[in-house]
Amino acid sequence: MKSEIFYKNPKSILNKGTGFLSGYTHSLNPYTGCSFSCSYCYVRQMPVSLFREGGQWGSWVDVKNGAADILKKEIVKAKKKGSVTIFMSSSTDPYQPIEHKETVTRSILEVLVETPPDFLLVQTRSPLVCRDIDLLQQLREKVRVSMTIETDSEIIRKYFSPEAPPIQARIKALQILADAGIPTQVAIAPLLPSGEYFPHKLKPIVNRICIDDFFLGDGSGGKRTKKIGIDKKFIELGLEEWYSTCAYKIVYKRFKEVFNEDQIYLSQAGFEP
């Protein structure tokens, strides 16, 4: 799906961390909308999507003009009030395809290198994050890149998120980040059907795993995801058992056999600063 691009002039760029992100002082979204258009994305059921005229989720992306200049002012004010922890991003992917051209996310990182927050979590599923290793390295222990890898199956990935980067490309990106000394984690979020060797594929390159599902992590106990109709996609695949409140236990058990228990986090705890 090709996304229509719009240019907006926001008045602010930092939002107060609330709800699932209450552990952060702020969230930051370089864009509104996301061309990865994952079928299960809970943002489909949020006002930013529901009340958008002209186009379904994934068919449009708003580029935030002047985001870096706005951030320069806002972060200075925020730091005067105390600790600043930022989650980037909560309702878009900061490294979706348009970032190649617009570089809004890179401009934001340049500001954060000059005026570092106490902690920055970069949540993405895109190997494009590797482009900014030079900036991420300067943030040192104050940053963590959380790479979404919901499954180890390309068949499953293509069924649920055909516009998103291939699984192997994400694993390769993690290796590049690790080799560069960037703190990383894998976010198995939302949890999709995977194989028993999934943990073994990740063990050589990462030492922190966050497991989250549709029920713990969509901010509504699974109600938003239910409205999207994701349960029907599992039924179509004959994998109904993976769409349940207990499915995460299967994956957690597999990972506990390969990773130390203190390296595995569940839902909100895995995204905390």
Results as ranks from 00 to 15, higher is better:
7 Y>E: 13
15 N>L: 09
16 K>P: 12
26 H>R: 03
29 N>A: 04
30 P>S: 08
34 C>G: 04
35 S>E: 11
36 F>S: 03
40 Y>N: 11
40 Y>G: 05
51 F>G: 10
52 R>D: 06
56 Q>P: 15
57 W>Y: 12
60 W>E: 05
60 W>M: 08
61 V>R: 02
65 N>C: 04
65 N>G: 07
69 D>F: 07
71 L>C: 03
74 E>W: 03
79 K>T: 04
81 K>L: 10
92 T>H: 01
96 Q>A: 02
97 P>E: 06
98 I>H: 04
98 I>Y: 03
99 E>R: 01
99 E>Q: 04
99 E>A: 02
99 E>I: 01
100 H>V: 13
102 E>F: 04
106 R>L: 03
108 I>A: 01
109 L>W: 00
111 V>L: 01
113 V>A: 03
116 P>R: 04
118 D>S: 10
119 F>I: 07
119 F>Q: 00
120 L>C: 07
123 Q>V: 15
126 S>V: 10
127 P>L: 06
130 C>V: 08
144 R>F: 06
146 S>H: 04
148 T>G: 07
152 D>N: 12
159 Y>S: 13
160 F>S: 07
162 P>S: 14
164 A>W: 02
167 I>M: 09
168 Q>C: 12
169 A>F: 12
178 A>P: 13
181 G>P: 08
182 I>Q: 03
184 T>Q: 06
197 Y>G: 15
199 P>L: 01
201 K>P: 13
205 I>N: 04
205 I>K: 01
206 V>M: 07
208 R>G: 09
208 R>H: 14
210 C>I: 15
212 D>Q: 11
212 D>K: 09
214 F>W: 08
226 K>N: 15
229 G>N: 14
230 I>G: 04
231 D>Q: 15
235 I>V: 15
236 E>D: 14
238 G>M: 07
241 E>A: 11
242 W>F: 09
244 S>W: 05
245 T>R: 15
247 A>M: 10
252 Y>C: 13
253 K>W: 12
254 R>P: 14
257 E>P: 09
263 Q>W: 11
264 I>S: 04
265 Y>M: 11
268 Q>R: 15
270 G>R: 05
271 F>K: 07
